[in-house]
Amino acid sequence: MFQIIKKFTSKIWKSIFRKRDNLKIGFYGPPNAGKTSLANKICKDWTGEDIGQVSAIPHETRNVQIKEQVKIEHNGKELTFKIIDTPGIATKIDYENFLKFGMKRGSAKKRAKQATQGIIEAIQWLDDMDAVIVVLDATQNPYSQVNITIIGNLVARKIPVLIAANKTDLKHADIKKVESAFPEYSVVGISAKEGHNMEEFYESLFTLAKKI
């Protein structure tokens, strides 16, 4: 009962005193979808610095990474965001998968342990977000339960969502399939790596910010 009252009071407090700047934007999605690549692209564009390291090995991001005061200008408007890059959410972690990338057994086991903790951390951060960009790999099947669970949780918490269908530079990218899987949400096709379609992405980001 106390928890419910506490949550309700905090919600009211937040809605009255919420600043329209330093909006907390979370980057969520499955591993290797390009969350950090996109967060890096944004941070590099507007602060000149990266937020984290990227790698072809899944679960490179194993801790929540934050970049404060990222000021973005678009069409004469300016907004300041707090960018929060989260570890990829998965339902299974097998250290043996990391061995395929040439990792030693000890390092692979350590990475797996950190990855499990990272997933728990990412889920626990959900409540703190003002809005979320769900980053999906447009070359993969979008109907995975992890994607549906992430979006379902954001809807349940009334957190505005934008879906970034990433990796459009790759041959098998299929934005239409992502759009058809999530017809109720805005989907923007991008390549964070190549910087394709970032103008439309920033347009969508500002539209998302209006929903907060």
Binding site: K92, I93, D94, K113, T116, Q117, I120, I123, N153
Partner: peptide
């Protein structure tokens, strides 16, 4: 579902040979 994933991850960490769920 989110709680199921959280508890699964905690178990992967603590139970030998448990890799998670589909």
């Amino acid at each position: 579902e989110a709680r199921l994933i959280e508890d699964t991850m905690a178990m992967v960490d603590h139970i030998k040979n448990f890799k998670g769920i589909e």
